[in-house]
């Protein structure tokens, strides 16, 4: 796993050297599914038939986040707006006023929401501060990402809902950006997650969780998985191999055990 700050853009790091790409691996998914189902059944048993045990990225975190309510709302809104920024950048949109552009895009998607109302009720000073913060994160995102190749197939906000143990366990995930850069059948799907917080140990777990979910969902192991922080510009890029996927299974089982105990 490599963690870098500004040396190369995250897209360059994800793309890597085309000549060195391995052939697509199509056998990992079955092994992983079997390993996960055996262990999850041992942890949880069949009691969740009608209310499945749902595991998301937030369940991977050992300690829950503890922030005041207002901070939590603003952090969530910042995260939502940055995801929208990535979606817009993926279709080549150039921002004039990032905060207003992103807010209007978000409004178009959800119509009415409590969080949108929260933004609408910010006083002028708080709103201006928040708008500046969003502009800074958007600039960091644009700078950290780099340019998309014209022939790449980009999918933003890829939702994943892998069902295990006959639906008794559901792995839910949202991969911020999935890029397919293949042109001659090589292994070329790379995954990107963006966060508005600085990178920490949890970022590695998130990166592995995405790789595991993508493997289970498509039956093909992705090439690389990365996390980019728009707070620090730092990026974490990992090659997806058997060791990384095994560690992802271990992270998940640990989270499932914690959730069942709670």
């Amino acid at each position: 796993m490599t963690s870098t700050l500004d040396s190369v853009t995250v897209l360059q790091a994800l793309r890597g050297n085309r000549a060195e790409r391995p052939a697509p691996r199509t056998t990992d998914a079955a092994h992983l599914r079997a390993a996960l189902e055996d262990s999850l059944y041992a942890i949880d048993g069949p009691q969740h038939f009608f209310n499945p045990l749902v595991l998301r990225t937030q369940e991977l975190r050992e300690l829950p986040l503890d922030f005041p309510a207002s901070h939590y709302s603003l952090a969530r809104i910042r995260g939502i707006l940055m995801h929208h920024a990535l979606r817009l950048l993926s279709v080549g949109y150039s921002f004039t006023d990032p905060f207003e552009d992103l807010l209007s895009a978000w409004r178009c998607e959800v119509g009415e929401s409590d969080l949108l109302e929260f933004v609408d009720h910010l006083d002028a000073e708080d709103r201006a501060k928040f708008a500046t913060e969003i502009a800074a994160h958007t600039a960091a995102l644009r700078h950290g990402l780099g340019t998309f190749g014209s022939g790449w197939s980009l999918r933003s906000t890829v939702r994943v809902a892998n069902l295990l143990c006959s639906g008794a366990v559901a792995l839910r995930d949202t991969i911020d950006l999935s890029i397919d850069t293949s042109d001659d059948g090589d292994c070329a799907t790379v995954l990107l997650d963006i966060t508005t917080a600085p990178l920490d140990e949890n970022s590695e777990k998130v990166l592995r969780f995405h790789a595991l979910n993508q493997t289970l969902r498509t039956g093909v192991t992705p090439l690389r998985s990365a996390v980019l922080s728009t707070a620090t510009g730092e990026q974490l890029v990992a090659e997806v191999d058997a060791a990384l996927l095994t560690q992802a299974v271990a992270d998940l089982l640990e989270a499932a055990e914690r959730k069942c105990r709670a």
């Binding site: 929208h84 979606r87 817009l88 993926s90 279709v91 949109y93 921002f95 552009d101 992103l102 209007s104 895009a105 178009c108 998607e109 197939s153 980009l154 999918r155 933003s156 906000t157 890829v158 397919d180």
Partner: peptide, 23 residues
């Protein structure tokens, strides 16, 4: 009736669908 940012979001979602269907 959409602004350019909103139209870009619509384009992004529709492209996601189109890519998935093409795959």
């Amino acid at each position: 009736e959409l602004s350019t940012a909103q139209l870009a979001l619509v384009t992004s979602d529709a492209l996601n669908w189109s890519h998935a269907l093409e795959e």
